[in-house]
Amino acid sequence: MATEVRKFEAWDWVLFALMLGISAVIGIFYAVKEFMNKDSNNADYLMGGRNMQLVPVAISILVSFMSAILILGTPAEMYTAGTLYFMYLIGMILAIILSALIFVPLLYPLRLTSSFEYLQLRFNSRAAKLTGTVIMIIQQILYMGIASYAPSTALEAVTGFPTWATIITVGCGSTFYTFLGGMKAVVWTDVFQAVVMIAGILAIVIQGAMKVGGMNTVWRINEDWHRIEFWNANFNPTTRHSI
């Protein structure tokens, strides 16, 4: 019996447009707010006035790492290769701790606009700053290509909306609210998008678990297929996942 493939309906398109619209409105709101504020300057636009609250900024940083590569790729990796992939979180946690203890105390008091400015201060060389900036631009262009292509192909699969059109639509929307609202718009749009992403993930997990009979059944099925694995001390470099 063939599985019915659900396509986008009118309400799905409304929600899709609403999400893009809310992001654009946030950009417009902060653009108008900064225009009305006679004391605003470049620091307010680029750095959010350096006085934004902790929680929104933390959520914004979190969302910066939650691309389609993570949302689509990590579940697929664990589904095919098992749960030992979680070990990479240990490295991520250690990296975050080291950054908080070493780099933040070093860079924050300097009140730099970009970490690349530190290269110029450290080596007394404008070429060092430009080199780091160019490398970062190239890396981000390559990364954004993959991060934009992944959700666009997923959207095309369920809607028939062309991949190239999705990339252009989302890219223009992101550029619009960033250009108008600056850093404050970016942070608060990230907060809004974080709520949408987390709600979507929870909906999938809860609905999926309910369909198969609960989390106990989910766990049992994965154990039967030998996907539950939390320790593998095999040092063979050809092993898919190990410590």
Rank of each mutant, 00 (worst) to 15 (best):
A24D: 03
R240L: 05
R126L: 12
T153R: 13
A147P: 00
W219C: 08
P109K: 08
M215L: 14
F176M: 08
V14N: 07
M47N: 10
I198C: 04
N236P: 02
L70K: 10
A233K: 11
I93S: 06
A76E: 15
I141P: 06
H226G: 13
V205N: 10
A233C: 14
T238H: 10
E156G: 09
A157G: 09
W225C: 14
N51I: 09
Y88H: 13
L107M: 14
G208Y: 01
S99M: 15
Q207R: 14
S114N: 07
F179Y: 15
A199D: 00
G213P: 04
L62W: 13
A43V: 11
A17Y: 09
M47Y: 07
L18K: 02
D44S: 11
L155C: 07
L62G: 04
P237L: 06
W13Q: 04
T133M: 12
L46V: 15
A43I: 10
G21M: 05
G21C: 05
Y30M: 00
W188S: 03
I167V: 13
Q140C: 07
F8N: 03
Q120N: 09
N222Y: 09
V187P: 00
S40T: 09
E9F: 11
N216L: 13
F230L: 10
M36H: 15
G171M: 05
Y108A: 14
